[in-house]
Nucleic acid binder design. Sequence first.
DNA 1: CCCTGATTCGC
DNA 2: GCGAATCAGG
Length: 180
Amino acid sequence: MSWTDERVEMLRKLWNDGLSASQVAAEIGAGITRNAVIGKIHRLGLAQRAKTPIAARPRVAKPQRPQQVAAPRMHHGHAPAIVGNVALALAPRALVMPDARPQEEVVIPMSERVTLMELRESMCRWPIGDPTSAEFRFCGARSPGGGGSPYCGYHSQIAYQPVQDRRRARDQLRSAARLA
DNA sequence: CCCTGATTCGC
DNA sequence: GCGAATCAGG
């Protein structure tokens, strides 16, 4: 993939509308990353969006890149923590987050859920919709316990409920067998 | 930790 | 020209 005229146009629009680089990247999709967006912004001379009056960016000392060999990221095992505020997880973000978006709101696209590009390690990975559809999203709610669970409180319950039922049923059978 | 934009430099 | 890796900061 590359910067087609169409994508550049989209980039200009979204960036000028005030979206962050990561948001623009997620919106454009097509494998365009946040870094790609930022890089293009600078090449196009679109940096400094009339925002951040801190024009005097010293940006001193150039640190020589350590040239390190990409260290593999370690992921610790996940213990399914079934906690969290179910009501909060169910509540639309409009209710959870009063209105931290004064004017850019109109620009915030589509669903309030997240796309694959927007999905972060700390977010609920519960899939929503048809995976083959462009409308496919993930729950995106912040999972409880600092990412201990792959799902938010609400979806953790859904995810693990069947297992709990199965174990309960098994235990009941054992009890019955013991009494018999 | 989450995120933001800025910069460098190998490709 | 491109953008991952990295930095500096909120």
